[in-house]
Write a protein that binds this DNA or RNA. Structure first.
Lengths: 333, 333
DNA sequence: ACTTTCCCCTGGAACGTTCCAGGGGAGATA
DNA sequence: TATCTCCCCTGGAACGTTCCAGGGGAAAGT
């Protein structure tokens, strides 16, 4: 049950602990014969270096701590893939702690990672008040991924929500739509940006924006769609705050017998799994999630290595055209 | 940037390192005055105990390692919630490593956790060949969650797929369906069990089972549904291997203009987010995911504490009735 | 034959904790 | 006054590594 140490290996191989250490770290100035003996002994005993002891003496853990605000959101799965890739290639390991969408739990997660002496910490979509985190940032490089950091000392990597909303509007306008309504996502920062992007793009096209309030949930989409259908000036296209809300819109349209996309086009945001697996695959805005993680990891690694401050990064979203958007039918136009 | 140690705190508080250690661990036999001084000093310096050093000397890390086979699958998000809850309440921390649905990466993840000297490891839905893991099980308690372990030395926690399939069939039969087809999920163990459960339940009701091959993906559902619709004996209900496949079925039915659930009822499996957020919310079989994690964590903790071997556990699935299943229309019956 | 060089190896100190044996001093007891 | 308790505190050893200074011996140079 208990773990063999470097001494156990040394004894079995008939060499000193130092020689075992050298072999394990791949030093070159070791005779082939001794090296083979050490490797054999280590194998036989099932020896594994104790990372805690290594971390202590090396003053470095080669651990990239990652706090995942919400594991239920597959958005972060891709971000983590990106982090993991970037980090593995330079000999680091990504260790994840779940934040459970809860500020206290995130603070706790950060504490755990700091005690473990992670060399840097990436906050993936933090819900925690960033000010609580700033103090910690004094002892470890910190990077925020997928949310804007409100604090200058903490760099963040995000995508451009203003631009994403413009992409959606441009696409619909190009198809010939003029009456394009937006169901917004509430008070969250990214919701505000998407709304502003929508409004600006509409005006740029000489169209009148029309926003109804909603949320980042299926129900938000349902309410928004109901409001829009009840009005006397039905739109020909709806741009929802995210995919979940778009699914709500689709369900209202399905129940009311409206034909999608024949009568009404729908665009979501985020390109989540539901957008793909929906009965009618959803046109949506994609964020480069994996890249988001990769860039965040790179920033963090840079800060570990030279300690210099790094800039925040904003990445470009893209449009993914699927089956919920077409040219509006003439009768409705 | 660098972290203060127990000595820094001791110097600032004017006491010995041992006293600081005692205060940090909440020992009672310390005078109030000294305790206050130590706490103040620790606070001022931003002192955080070094978990690596603690782990070394205590010969215990209070880390529960978790290998998550697939972060993109929200199934595991709930499992992890369960693990985290169970583990936190006894002073442990769950540290996650992503397996990226890849046997090599999982082996690597296990290696990482073993080097960190996690006190136990939970494999959540492992894709790795369990035999590769058995050797590791000699040095650390191991528990498999959400998949059946083929090895006696490694206990597992799963839900009863045979029973889940029976639940689906019973529900449809109760509604009056007789022609119930199953689109299976391929070769995976759980797919086989669901198919067997379906077949057994059908025979129990005196009905003839009809299985078409598919997979655990949207495409699998699409192909299966196309096969069924092309045949001359259309079913009145389809039981898909999982929710994703069911979404594929729904999309084929949507395209062909078939009314769901009026003409055809559909049942999925897993109760994933798509089941809820689908335009027509999906009737499906739910696995007690959180409980799965909790039980796995409890088994692991038991093995840490008394080292005795523990039994595998099988939990009960439940039926979640939503909008894709109704009594078949007379004309079709 | 003596020194130098080089290769391969070794022991000791250090990393930041915990825990244990023991010590100083105040108050109680004789 | 001398002894005993008890409370609070301290220093040292240990945990499993890495890294450094240095050592032994063979080969090479003088």
């Amino acid at each position: 049950m208990s773990h063999p140490t470097i001494f156990d290996v040394a004894r079995r191989a008939g060499v000193s602990k130092s020689l075992v250490s050298m072999v394990m770290r791949g030093a070159t100035n070791v005779s082939d014969e001794r090296r083979a003996r050490v490797i054999a002994a280590a194998e036989e005993l099932g020896y594994r270096p104790n990372a805690a002891a290594q971390s202590l003496v090396r003053q470095k853990s080669f651990v990239m701590g990652v706090i995942v605000s919400d594991l239920h959101n597959t958005f972060f799965a891709d971000v983590i893939d990106g982090i993991d890739n970037a980090v593995r290639s330079v000999g680091y390991r990504a260790l994840l702690v779940s934040g459970h969408l809860n500020a206290d739990r995130e603070t706790e997660a950060l504490e755990t990672l700091l005690r473990l002496r992670a060399d840097a910490v990436i906050l993936a979509g933090p819900a925690v008040d960033i000010d609580d985190v700033v103090a910690a940032a004094a002892s470890v490089p910190l990077v925020v991924a997928g949310a804007v950091s409100s604090h200058a000392a903490i760099p963040s990597v995000t995508t451009d929500d203003l631009r994403g909303a413009a992409l959606a509007v441009d696409h619909l306008v190009e198809l010939g739509h003029k009456k394009i309504s937006h169901i917004d996502g509430g008070d969250a920062l990214s919701s505000r940006l998407r709304r502003q992007g929508y409004e600006a793009a509409m005006r740029r096209h000489g169209l009148e924006p029309r926003v109804v309030s909603g949320s980042f949930t299926r129900d938000g989409g349902i309410h928004g769609a109901q409001t829009l259908l009840a009005g006397d000036d039905e739109p020909t296209a709806i741009f929802a705050a995210n995919d979940l809300a778009a699914m709500g819109v689709l369900s209202v349209l399905h129940d009311s017998g409206a034909d999608v996309p024949g009568e009404l086009s729908v665009v979501g945001y985020d390109n989540t799994a539901v957008a793909q697996s929906s009965p009618i695959p959803l046109t949506t805005i994609d964020q480069p999630r994996t890249e988001l993680g990769e860039v965040a990891a790179r920033l963090a690694l840079e800060r570990i290595n030279d300690g210099t401050d790094v800039q925040s990064v904003v990445l470009e979203p893209t449009l993914v055209i699927r089956d919920t958007t077409v040219t509006p039918t003439h009768s409705r136009q």
